[in-house]
Design a protein around this nucleic acid. Structure first.
Lengths: 301, 301
DNA sequence: TTGTAAGCGTTATCAG
DNA sequence: CTGATAACGCTTACAA
């Protein structure tokens, strides 16, 4: 009868005829310790056979923090980039024996949960972006953003557009506001006139107003915003790219589904995720070098 | 100089001139204990002033599980329903002092994190749905599903449709397969012929095939699938609802954006979330009674 | 009515 | 090279 009680280090120690401490040393590969290979093997096997799993809560209590890192993804636009970034984090953290928890800012209880976890670190992308200080272990995610916007705008410029608007959301979201700033910076770098903000709120007047102002193309902060532009365009009988070229940013599945299919920009967010994890863990960046952003050319621009 | 060390119960005890145990009793409202109001007040104030925060890890170690419940949302379609369900959970769990963690099955590290947390409970909706046993603390979410599909189909029937297809995804997803079964059950209950599956994979032949087979309306498992149908319809020069009526399920923002705007079904998922939380906590359901599902009528059906 | 003390499972420090 | 032993912060019998 396999008792209902948890298998602890004591059990492993008893089973392998050593002390609890020795078990701890063996199982954690204690640095700079000399334990006979024979003993190590014996301990390892005992642990295996008994099905020993370290009790992470006890460990966390002892270590002062759990082996979990939290990603605060509350204000971030969901989509391909975020998922890939998470996948990258997952990969590296998992390999290092760390757990990753993604919090989408669901509410009070999520916040409560995070404090209850005593995470080793929390990656707060929105906060990072809100502040002026970019000296954070963000793996170059932020600083590269302007570069990424450059490829978005260059695609438009290469097609002869100069008067571009930037599609922004109706409310004010700190993260998206930051993104808008990056588009402006990129436009300046390309010597374009300052892009007009085109707020996407379902009002068909907005795009026709932009059109009247001479705008010929729209760079959207996200794919979803691009889709919003496409929708109101369709409402007014206009279409992309004929009347207005529209390019997104994120390469969401929805964009590919739309008609006209959305031209967009895709980042190697997975590599950014890996890089972020590695710098967080104090590891060398290694092979986690992100590929440059690239345009996914479809129909809308 | 506020030391960097954590404020512990000992500190509070020292500051209020009682013992650690008394502090614990007071702060946890120990049931069936008689501590003079004066003392309680003193302890509470001391805790406040020192900024005492209970150390959840230590508590978890002692209690055998953390005060966190995990929602496994891995295989679930994202959208309005899921968000609302989560919001409902959040509300009730937060009020009870529990934390909620939502796992979107991000990967190995997420799994590692969950085991590292020793949650009080984990709500595994996909697993619940995969098994034949619905006697789970799901707050009636599952059992009501057929009823919800009835309102989806009834909307079609009320508009004269009898030959309906059900839009399903290309791969096989256990949760979506379950949903498909519910649609079939609902169709049977309405005395409709068994709905043909219409797999949404971007192939325009699929809908025209359905059309040829006499299908006049499509009930989609999710809004996103409905959108997929709308997209290929547009590709072939057909449109909804003229050629084929399409109704979604979930009321995602994307659906409202589409042209033609998607008619869909919306559940009171928040109430289901609240109910799930309450039954999980062993509380009476109280006022967490879900409103019936209702059709959001837009253009596509 | 309040205080003492024994753990929860782990890791780390010292003597042997 | 190994084995006691002491924390980590909290809960809860049980003793005073």
């Amino acid at each position: 009868m396999t008792g209902k009680t948890r298998v602890t280090m004591r059990d492993v120690a008893a089973a392998s005829g050593v002390s609890q401490a020795t078990v701890s040393f063996v199982l954690n590969d204690a640095p700079g310790q000399t334990i006979p290979a024979a003993t190590r093997e014996r301990v390892r096997r005992a642990a295996d056979e008994l099905g020993y799993r370290p009790h992470s809560i006890a460990r966390a209590l002892r270590e002062g923090a759990s082996r979990i890192v939290v990603l605060e993804a509350g204000g971030l636009p969901r989509g391909h980039h975020l998922s890939s970034f998470i996948a990258g984090l997952d990969e590296e953290l998992g390999a290092a024996g760390f757990g990753l928890l993604v919090s989408y800012g669901e509410g009070v209880s999520a916040r409560a949960a995070i404090t209850a976890i005593e995470p080793r670190a929390v990656i707060d992308l929105p906060a990072v972006c809100a502040g002026p200080d970019h000296d954070v272990a963000d793996g170059g995610w932020i600083d590269g953003m302007v570069a990424h916007r450059l490829v978005q705008l260059r695609h438009l410029v290469a097609r002869g557009h100069r008067a571009v608007a930037v599609a922004v959301p109706a409310g004010d979201d700190p993260f998206l506001a930051l993104m808008a700033g990056q588009v402006r910076d990129a436009a300046e770098e390309l010597g374009l006139p300052e892009p007009l903000p085109l707020v996407v709120d379902g009002d068909p007047e907005k795009p026709v107003g932009a059109l009247k102002a001479g705008v010929t193309a729209v760079a959207a902060l996200t794919d979803d915003l691009a889709l919003g532009v496409l929708a109101v365009l369709a409402d007014t009988g206009l279409s992309a790219p004929g009347d207005l070229a529209v390019i997104g940013f994120d390469d969401t599945p929805h964009g590919a589904l739309w008609r006209p299919a959305l031209t967009t920009v895709r980042l190697d967010a997975r590599a950014y995720g890996r890089r972020t994890a590695r710098t967080l863990l104090g590891l060398p960046v290694g092979d986690a070098r992100p590929a440059p952003a690239r345009v996914i050319e479809r129909a809308s621009a």
